[in-house]
Amino acid sequence: MVAPSTVPVRSEQTYPVQLIQPDGRRVHRPEYSGLISDVGPAELRDLYRDLVVIRRLDTEATALQRQGELGLWAPLTGQEAAQVGSARALDPDDYVFTSYREHGVAWCRGVDPAAMTRLWRGCAHSGWDPATVNMTNPAIVVGSQGLHATGYAMGAKLDGADIATVVYFGDGATSQGDLSEALGFAVSWGVGVVFFCQNNQWAISVPTHVQSPVPLAQRAAGFGMPAVQVDGNDVLAVLAVTRQAVRHARDGGGPFFVEALTYRMGPHTTSDDPTRYRTPADLEQWRARDPLERVRRLLERENLADEAFFADVQAAADDAAARLRRGTLEMPDPEPLMLFDHVYSTDHPMLAEERAGYAGYLAGFATTDEEARS
Rank of each mutant, 00 (worst) to 15 (best):
V105N: 00
G254L: 03
P16E: 05
R301C: 01
A352V: 11
P113R: 01
T367F: 11
G184C: 10
G160D: 10
R287T: 03
Q211A: 15
F256V: 06
L64R: 04
R118S: 12
V96I: 15
W189D: 12
D341L: 00
A317G: 02
G184Q: 11
D234Q: 08
E43I: 03
D231M: 08
S374L: 15
T367M: 12
F309E: 12
D306A: 02
T328V: 04
R276N: 13
P213G: 12
H342D: 02
D178Y: 11
R323V: 08
L324W: 02
G360S: 15
R121L: 08
P41K: 08
W128L: 09
I163E: 01
A81Y: 00
A61F: 08
G364T: 13
A74G: 07
F223M: 15
P22I: 08
D23Q: 11
A363K: 14
D162H: 14
L239A: 06
V228I: 14
R287C: 03
G177E: 09
G360P: 03
A115H: 14
V167Q: 05
A63S: 10
V241L: 05
P213N: 12
V241I: 06
V191D: 05
E60T: 10
T262E: 03
E31F: 03
G357R: 12
K157C: 11
A372H: 15
V96C: 15
W189E: 11
V17H: 00
W189F: 13
S126K: 02
R45T: 10
L35N: 06
V193H: 00
M338Y: 01
S11L: 12
D93G: 13
V111Q: 07
A321M: 04
S144G: 05
A317E: 02
P291F: 00
D333F: 03
P334G: 04
A63C: 07
D251E: 13
Q83M: 10
M135T: 10
E80S: 05
R29H: 03
D273E: 09
G78T: 08
G24N: 11
L183V: 14
R26H: 06
H248C: 05
V142F: 09
S345D: 07
Y100P: 00
L324A: 11
I54A: 00
D273T: 08
G327I: 09
D50L: 02
